[in-house]
Nucleic acid binder design. Structure first.
Length: 340
DNA sequence: TCTGGGGTCCTAGGACCC
DNA sequence: TCTGGGGTCCTAGGACCC
């Protein structure tokens, strides 16, 4: 029985690939890859060959020469996302988007219902009304609901009732926890912690020594199955950005500035289309050797016109005090609003 | 022949103000 | 005049997520 809360995590399986398949049934059953030059999404058949998002085309073709490639159709994915979220909002009191294709649903209003039945019904509605396969996890908290849906993928339903939380968490590896990435996992491994059970046995002080205070507290709570973060509706976006990986060391400064200007304009167009203004522009450069370097400038007031940003980001002007601008590609363009 | 592109949040130090 | 604390803003970097 869910006494306080019931959270669902709903996630469309292989989203882009599933939309393509829905719109062209001939693509059903084969290894399907959406993308050009780089894998943006892979069907589960393609994933069986070890193909995943971000992989380069050459590597993907080596692993599965017979995969079918289709170019991305972002408009179709946006519309599919709106359709899926319309169903989410129809069944849940609060919907918190995680991305285009996934969301947390606060089902507090339906907490007397059977979680499994709710999840099955949601899956059926998305399949019938939008034509897309959905996986649903149900639990008391967001993290557990997320872990449940991950365990149930694809096209599944998994409920973790409160009395089963410990048994579900214990055998997981620490890197399976949502929020524990490669760096944090490495620190835990070096401290002799591999599984969530081992992590849960450590004291808060010990975990904080290993990971630092804030991160230690969060990870310690995750391992204990404690996650009090509520399902929240989305706030206004905090930043708009544009980025590209295609910058060569052989480019001249003038060519780099053209790339940079184009990125600033691209980000600003999307920002203005949504009705926001910005005060801060961040230029970020990721070097092939690894390091990421950023420089930012904050104006006194949010502005409508991106001209000043293009000038300050691209033309090498300097902030009032501080270091010179890095020559390179724009990465972020922060929104102003009231705060930044 | 090119190692995705879009985000979020946190931390730490310095400047500045009261 | 000196010391100290608290708060906010800005900048740079880091980690993580889909």
């Amino acid at each position: 029985v869910f006494v306080f809360t019931l959270v669902l995590h709903a996630d469309v399986d292989a989203f882009f690939a599933s939309v393509e398949r829905r719109d062209d049934p001939r693509l059903t059953g084969c290894p399907l890859i959406v993308g050009t030059h780089v894998v943006m999404a892979a069907s589960y058949e393609a994933r069986a060959f070890g193909i995943h998002g971000g992989m380069r085309e050459r590597e993907a073709r080596r692993r599965c020469p017979d995969a079918v490639w289709v170019p991305p159709r972002s408009g179709a994915y946006m519309q599919a996302s709106r359709d899926v979220f319309a169903v989410f909002r129809d069944v849940a009191a609060i919907v918190e988007p995680g991305s285009l294709e996934e969301a947390f649903l606060d089902m507090a209003d339906a907490r007397d219902s059977d979680p499994h039945a709710l999840a099955v019904a949601l899956r059926a509605r998305v399949r019938d009304e939008v034509g897309l396969p959905l996986t649903v996890g149900a639990a008391r908290s967001k993290v557990l609901a997320k872990l449940a849906s991950r365990a149930a993928k694809p096209e599944g339903v998994k409920v973790i009732p409160p009395e089963a939380e410990r048994a579900f968490l214990d055998p997981l590896n620490v890197e399976d926890l949502w929020g524990v990435g490669p760096k944090t996992a490495g620190k835990l491994h070096r401290a002799g912690i591999t599984t969530v059970a081992e992590l849960a046995r450590r004291s808060l002080a010990n975990v904080s020594d290993i990971l630092g205070k804030a991160s230690g507290r969060e990870v310690h709570a995750l391992a204990a199955g404690r996650d009090l973060r509520p399902v929240q509706p989305p706030g206004p976006p905090r930043s708009f950005g544009a980025s590209t990986a295609y910058v060569r060391a052989s480019m001249t400064l003038t060519e780099l500035r053209q790339v940079l200007d184009g990125l600033v304009v691209r980000a600003c167009e999307r920002m203005r289309a949504k009705g926001y203004r910005a005060r801060t522009v961040v230029v970020q450069l990721q070097f092939v050797e690894g390091p990421v370097v950023s420089r930012s400038v904050t104006l006194a007031q949010a502005i409508e016109d991106d001209g000043p940003f293009v000038t300050r980001a691209g033309a090498g002007s300097r902030p009032a005090r501080g270091a010179a601008q890095a020559p390179g590609s724009v990465d972020h363009e922060r929104r102003g609003g009231e705060r930044r």
